[in-house]
Design a protein around this nucleic acid. Structure first.
Lengths: 204, 204
DNA sequence: GTCTATACACCGATAGAC
DNA sequence: GTCTATCGGTGTATAGAC
């Protein structure tokens, strides 16, 4: 039972234990640490102890802010997802939306981080839901931007914005992944192709 | 297995301990078990104990055939890679090579398994090398098949086989991954586009 | 070749003091 | 809110018998 003096929004886990507020400084610091571990060491190293060590607190505290490690991973992806969608919306609102979106996809995506989340999503049901939601939201933003651009160029009639969105994000992810793995053969040709396409439907 | 023939080539690990022969029945059984675990439970569950349990031997035996778990993972990917490249070469040698290759990429690829290996490749140097090798080999097969097909259709002049290969494999992987995650919005449009393209450069 | 047994590290999660 | 302390479990890897 909650003590009377407590805020209405205080969180509790299943055993009704008091928990730290999402969005607080420590909560963010823990997700920052978790994100760094995931980027640099992979998800096998994503443990409560490693996170605590990295941000200079004791392991027990991680469980004050997240009731399980799976919850932490889900919150981490959710925070990242919100930020990424915001970035996409900003790009879509710029003067050259398609170029900006392409730029975001190909230059600021961390394919290593994504591969960690994809691997985790096979196991963590709640994460899978978040991933699907992100895929659908980000695609909607892209499809909208592409559709608007196509309307302005008559010669683009018949092109499907949905298909273009899937092709572009797929290729961007592959190029980023391969570049970060250490192989880039054939990349220039396909990048050139996309830039030519961009120039044709979104003249600078 | 050839008992005598192994004598000269007997493997030893760093501490000069004798090890089981790669390619033997047990060696394959262990990799079979590892592959199943990776598919069904993800790489967090890929442990020597779990593999042993699955194929009905004791945990110790795994270390008779593989000196470390990382080595096992590398051998597993290598075996898979050899099989997959063989399958691609067969498809490339068929009467409708592009259709066959597309079919392999989009229908028989296990995106979950790939995501596990990709996540592991960030950490295991030797695996990363194997992955890069596979990417380059499979792309070479595809580029070769695409180039041959393009030569036969005059209206395809100017198309870059390397760019087409990257686009096709990227899209195939994305569609497979999303399908296995549980979302398929927009897939039909892009599949239709690829089939139209296939029909134009490789008439049935 | 396959086993028993074990050393040792690390993990998630909890109890409860301050 | 942060801590000390701890439980029970699982992991990699090795020693050495048969």
């Amino acid at each position: 039972m909650s003590p009377m003096g407590e805020a209405m929004s205080a969180k509790h886990d299943k055993s009704d234990r008091r928990m730290g507020p999402p969005g607080s400084d420590n909560w963010h610091a823990m997700l920052d640490g978790a994100e760094a571990v995931l980027r640099e060491e992979g998800h096998a190293a994503l443990t409560s102890r490693r996170i605590a060590e990295r941000i200079g607190v004791k392991q027990r505290l991680v469980y004050y802010y997240f009731s399980t490690m799976d919850d932490l991973v889900i919150d981490l992806f959710h925070r990242l997802s919100v930020r990424e969608l915001e970035r996409l919306r900003e790009a879509a609102d710029s003067s050259l939306p398609l170029r900006e979106i392409w730029e975001v996809c190909i230059n600021t995506t961390d394919a290593r981080l994504i591969s960690q989340f994809m691997a985790l999503a096979n196991r963590i049901e709640g994460l899978r839901k978040e991933v699907i939601h992100f895929i659908e939201e980000s695609r909607a933003i892209q499809v909208d931007a592409i559709a608007k651009a196509l309307q302005r160029v008559p010669q683009a009639a018949g092109l499907d914005p949905g298909a273009i969105a899937i092709i572009a994000t797929s290729v961007a992810l592959t190029l980023t992944r391969e570049r970060q793995l250490g192989t880039e053969s054939g990349h220039q040709a396909v990048i050139g192709l996309f830039e030519k396409f961009l120039a044709s439907i979104e003249p600078a």
